[in-house]
Amino acid sequence: MAELHIALEVNGEQREADVEPRTLLVSMLREDLELTGTHVGCDTSQCGACTVLVDGHAVKSCTMLAVQAEHTAVTTIEGLGQPGSLHPLQQAFWDKHGLQCGFCTPGMIMAAADLMAHNPEPTDTEIRHAIAGNICRCTGYHNIVAAVREAASVMREGAAAPATNA
């Protein structure tokens, strides 16, 4: 099958790839760009393990063709934070035991990141609604909700801090 050349921004870097028109965004991320933190958990866009941010919005990267991502800015779990410079969500998932096997975790964190961007002070109900498209089989969601609640609190304090200093 003929391949198409596409360019996009991934985790702040310009990346290019040659992909078949049928290639899903998740496949390009995993296979061509070797960003294997984004996982595939199903084949019907139900599980959310493949959730990434596309231009700041949470997207199940199995529902999007790679070619549709041309000229967009994609953020994957690898781009959110790394050991030593964790995003507050990553830190809170660690602190609150928001993961067990870790397979749903990247997608779950990216879905929560979308929530944070739009709702800095979510209620538990709003958190549960925001991650309803992401399935976790290990945690019963209890500690995931606690982690997102904690991260929101930390991020609000972080956002408030510069104003206080000024």
Partner: peptide, 19 residues
């Protein structure tokens, strides 16, 4: 105690079969 496994899982560095 916080889990020692977690830094790799929360940053996308787990290594599952398909990786």
């Amino acid at each position: 105690v916080r889990r020692v496994e977690d830094p790799r899982f929360i940053t996308g560095h787990g290594r599952y079969l398909d990786d």
